[in-house]
């Protein structure tokens, strides 16, 4: 759920970054949003640990508060900002091909977002590849991880940093809320299908691709929101995995 919170609360970061830089340059926005993502994680932890507020409430209070500030900033600078609430919530993946990157020579290098997302994907893969065992042990047994000297806080923030980056990179295309579908649905589905952590990671990626492609065709067919269709498809895949999970369990008993 923290990813849900982050995906919402990066909004003020994006708006502020936009106001400062005056451009929709993805890199600046990424930095602004990434910072806000880390701040969000920090506030949630702070309210929970120092404020003794229960975890679920500290998440709920934090992200609604930051999101509200973001919306207010948006409407206050509505005239100057080439962003709107609709775009933030839902994104518009269909418009991506229009935002092209031209080299100085004028060569068409394709949509910008592909590079940004591609870069982030590469980063995420590299971080996971090189820190696989730390991530595994902190996720599985944080107490043990701490006892052998692996910093739980550090890896927590690394993961949350990655989550914020991914969120921000995707939110232009799919919007703040639907990012959550992409972050949670594939791993949850894979989790029901396998017990091995590695297989789960691979399966998650495969599911992500499957969801995107099938979602796209559904959207074209219905002439509706692509992001919406994709997250609906992720629901369908999850439902199928869940049915299989229940069915195999029942057959055993």
């Amino acid at each position: 759920m923290v990813s849900d919170a982050i995906s919402h609360s990066v909004l003020p970061g994006i708006v502020i970054a936009f106001l400062i830089s005056g451009s929709r340059d993805s890199l600046v926005m990424l930095i602004g949003a990434g910072l806000l993502g880390l701040i969000t994680t920090f506030i949630i932890e702070f309210l929970h640990q120092k404020g003794r507020l229960q975890a679920d409430a500290s998440i709920g209070v934090t992200f609604t508060w930051l999101f509200a500030i973001g919306v207010i900033l948006l409407s206050y600078f509505a005239g100057d900002v080439d962003l709107d609430q609709d775009c933030v919530l839902n994104g518009e993946i269909a418009l991506l091909p229009l935002d092209l990157w031209y080299t100085e020579g004028g060569t068409n290098m394709g949509p910008k977002t592909i590079y940004v997302s591609g870069g982030i994907t590469l980063l995420v893969v590299l971080v996971i590849y090189f820190n696989y065992k730390e991530l595994l042990v902190t996720t599985f047994d944080s107490g043990y991880a701490a006892s052998i000297g692996i910093s739980i806080a550090l890896w927590h923030y690394v993961i949350m940093g990655l989550v914020s980056l991914t969120t921000v990179a995707s939110f232009e295309s799919v919007g703040a809320i639907l990012v959550v579908a992409f972050i949670i649905a594939p791993p949850a589905t894979a989790y029901l299908l396998t017990e091995k952590f590695k297989t789960m990671l691979l399966l998650t990626c495969a599911l992500g691709i499957l969801i995107s492609i099938s979602g796209y065709y559904v959207a074209v067919w219905l002439d509706g929101s692509i992001a919406g269709a994709m997250s609906s498809m992720s629901g369908v895949f999850f439902a199928m995995a869940f049915a299989r999970y229940r069915w195999t369990k029942k057959r055993i008993t």
Partner: peptide
């Protein structure tokens, strides 16, 4: 299932909302 509550909440929330967006855009278009 072994899915934890917070994951189940996030999953439902986003899938339902996504489906809603799909319908909404469908109606608009």
């Amino acid at each position: 299932s072994k899915i934890k509550e917070d994951a189940a909440i996030g999953l439902n929330l986003s899938v339902f909302f996504g489906f809603g967006m799909l319908l909404l855009t469908y109606i608009q278009h």
